[in-house]
Design a protein around this nucleic acid. Structure first.
Lengths: 265, 265
DNA sequence: ACCTGAACACCGTTCAAGT
DNA sequence: ACCTGAACACCGTTCAAGT
């Protein structure tokens, strides 16, 4: 009995012994086609023309397999490091490159994004992001938290983009329909533009925080008009509902004057 | 044979006929305890002391059941509408209230957030959000897209918070370990603070866009220093990799001067 | 060492049959 | 009308047995 078999369509498979890499590659192909939830050890084995149980000699279980696939494409992330460019441009480039990778395997990424261990400290994306924040002048001690927030924001927008929520929400009617017009007018609105808008917005917000930080405290004249007025308003006009862990937030009205004061002072 | 039975532990169940609401309530209890992925039609039936097949007379299938549960807790969202407060404060309050709801049922929310139809046009959260953006002076035509982005950002941070990624990322070592210190020093860093920081940052970014919009174009003196300098830099220093749909973005260097120019002009 | 068939303990769901 | 038992078509995974 020969090992090389032919599928009903005649394509040749399994002329090579099973490998973890080969299994992951085939799994990725199935995920790209039908999504993570449609991936099955049995279907994967069939695609590899192998016995379902043979997979377990190379992969401990399905969860580890998915981790392997995610790690495989995560390692494919590439970006250029423009040391001389301003940090704003580097951050935009980094986020755009990340998004490009996500667009390459949307089904896998929609799954990976909800895994807490998706980003590892050695990942080139994380390394580049912390480097950019360092170049921006963020204090060393605040870099991890701020990088985490940037990750969360960027990934949040991409989740909403990949599962179609961004598109659907964008076409929801505003509260006041104005007049009987013919449906949503945002046909050519473009997720590209929205992604760039989010980037520009958080970069603007970071810029104003960083410059306020460098200007030093509350003495400088207000830069435009209302940017700092909102900070004088008490943070919470009513007591917040209890959180899960019953944790009480230290000082309810900690007025954040400027800068990234993440640490307990 | 009586309908009221007792479980092995003696607690009484099913003294009331099956209802869709009752099924959803029981499902929510199981989800709160063990997560969505652990919910099973058979386990749910056992919790209701019913035959697994009886559920299908009140709920078409498991997917619809989960939609029903999500809709049930989504309808529980409440917020106060402070008509007189500045839009920044209203937006903060709205996001915080949303987060409070998410903390009440984290397992369900972590699932719901990845469903594209989680937010419906009639949802009080959406209505309130669009009202806030309207009060902020966002042009009517841009409100849906901007609200969608706010949703995506806020939900993204909450996903990362609920699944622990935010906490893990925050404790990743920076690239330069400085010295052999004893691990991460961010023990009391607090997701509350990080959530507020994201809110403040996007609000700051929106403020600078809105005020720049009102000031009208590029003639006004630069407000502080670098906020607008980054816009003069060409957007893309290298050609972007092809996106999924092969869609070419119109003008690669569309310099966004100010305001929310989401529409194709 | 690598593979495999049978089997186990689960799923969601259909359907014919009960009351 | 509402409920139910049996059954179907799947899962992931274990395990003893093969080569």
């Amino acid at each position: 009995m020969e090992r090389v078999k032919r599928t009903p369509r005649g394509t040749r498979k399994r002329d090579v012994p099973l490998t973890e890499a080969g299994i992951c590659t085939s799994a990725l192909r199935l995920i790209d086609a039908d999504g993570v939830e449609a991936l099955t050890m049995r279907k994967l084995a069939a695609a590899l023309d192998a016995n379902p149980m043979s997979l377990y000699h190379h992969v401990p279980n399905k969860e580890a397999l998915l981790r392997g696939v995610a790690g495989m494409v995560g390692a494919r992330f590439r970006t250029v490091t423009l040391e001389d460019a301003p940090w704003q441009e580097r951050m935009r480039l980094l986020a755009t490159d990340f998004r490009t990778l996500a667009h390459r395997h949307p089904n896998l990424m929609a799954y990976s994004f909800s895994q807490p261990d998706f980003i590892q400290p050695e990942d080139p994306f994380w390394v580049a992001l912390t480097a950019v924040l360092d170049a921006a002048g963020v204090p060393q001690s605040d870099i991890p938290q701020l990088a985490a927030l940037v990750c969360a924001v960027v990934i949040g927008v991409m989740i909403a983009e990949l599962n179609g929520a961004l598109h659907r929400w964008s076409n929801l009617q505003p509260t006041t329909p104005a007049s009987g017009e013919d449906g949503p007018t945002n046909e050519g609105f473009g997720e590209d533009r929205m992604f760039r808008l989010v980037l520009d917005t958080i970069i603007s917000g970071m810029e104003s925080r960083l410059t306020a930080d460098h200007a030093g405290g509350r003495d400088g004249q207000p830069p435009q008009n209302s940017r700092r007025a909102s900070r004088r308003i008490p943070r919470q006009l009513r007591p917040p509902a209890a959180l899960c862990e019953g944790e009480s937030r230290g000082n309810p009205v900690s007025d954040v004057e400027a800068g990234f004061d993440l640490k307990e002072q």
